[in-house]
Nucleic acid binder design. Structure first.
Lengths: 213, 213
DNA sequence: CCCTTTCTTCACCACCTGATGAAGAACACG
DNA sequence: CGTGTTCTTCATCAGGTGGTGAAGAAAGGG
């Protein structure tokens, strides 16, 4: 429909986009800080210097706003792409470094927002799980190709989740105030071990699947 | 003071304790499932078959109820004690096995309750961090005695947090539906490596101690 | 019996929540 | 100018929130 954006149709289209983006920015900030449920539309509107009704005018519902705030399109992908660009040899370091650098840059990142909201909001949990599965687990598993790829990718997920929660959600020391390089020194070998280390022993039962490679 | 508890003073002290414990049980269940903020006093009261006012009669405020529900006295300690009972050789397996077995037994455990509530509730975050520091980090560090003990203990914390969040909060597959033995096979070596493996390389800057701040 | 203590319930409060509808202001076009 | 579109504000809604106060029902003791 109205794709122009600069001029053409009547109305006051300038301040509109401005307010909309300001709401979006504030929403990302507050959602990322307190999670979905603990952040009220009124709080966002007030912090953005805007009437609460405007939020609903632009985004319809609170969930619509959250969806727009959490929508990642062209934002995270480039960072993630660089992880899978290189080979398997140093992928552990690339995963940890990319994760921490991107999350350090801005705490209002969708990943943190979703991680904060997931325990409270079922939709956030589904979104986050879907994102992790599609963007990390599946790609890692495809990259490995081994029969135990899913298991190894899941172990990496645990590393990523643990690191994210410890550093950005719960801010546990000394993880919270460690430097990027220190975190890489700590966790890159672990992540690397998850992916390319010796296969986990399959002593018990048959669920473990035979460890080829 | 009225310390007796069995009989002596007038009044209907029997059903009182019964209702109080029923409220407490239901509160643990709901808090553990939805977190602090997303659980209303009325929901707890209704689920417990009790008038909402009774909750305030017994516990004063919602936070008082949460504090009572989350209060761990003699409940978690015995399980944790067994972790530190043995030597360092197989402590990785003991940590993972004890954690998963105890959390599998009942999802309404204080650890899960706090982990669910921490992102939303500042007090829960403080409580959980304090618990982890006192009961895990400090004891692990003391057990190791090495200069990099704090760093190693922190790495174990990340493993514990990641495993807890992946299995009980976000229920990521295949972690969520893996057996205890499978999880031990996966993560016990990692945890063991955190504690007794070769020290993290300190290629950059100083020894890692004086990095932050 | 009465009386005290404990438990239980009901009615109610002020406040905040997400959301709606209509009226009004800013703007660009004809 | 007027007109139509977009943006902004206001008043308001129903419903849920944590929390309170008083009155009533059991249970005991004297």
């Amino acid at each position: 429909m109205t794709e122009d954006g600069t001029h053409g149709r009547p109305g006051r289209w300038r301040s509109g986009a401005e307010s909309k983006q300001r709401i979006l920015r504030t929403a990302r900030e507050l959602f990322g800080e307190h999670g979905y449920r603990a952040t009220s539309v009124r709080a966002i509107a007030t912090a953005a210097g805007v009437d609460p009704a405007m939020v609903f005018y632009f985004f319809g519902t609170k969930q619509g706003l959250f969806g727009a705030a959490v929508d990642m399109s062209g934002d995270v992908p480039p960072a993630i792409e660089s992880i899978f660009a290189g080979g398997l040899g140093t992928i552990g370091e690339r995963i940890v470094r990319t994760l921490v650098e991107n999350l350090d840059k801005s705490g209002r990142t969708p990943l943190v927002m979703l991680t904060r909201s997931a325990p409270t909001d079922a939709r956030s949990e589904a979104l986050l799980r879907e994102f992790i599965d599609r963007e990390i687990t599946d790609r890692l598993a495809a990259m490995l190709g081994t029969p135990d790829a899913a298991r190894r990718a899941a172990m990496v997920n645990v590393q990523i989740l643990g690191l994210t929660v410890a550093r950005y959600i719960m801010r546990i020391e000394p993880i919270a105030s460690a430097s990027v390089d220190e975190l890489v020194d700590m966790f890159a070998p672990l992540v690397q071990h998850c992916l390319t280390g010796p296969p986990p022993r399959t002593t018990r039962g048959g669920t473990g699947r035979s460890a080829a490679e």
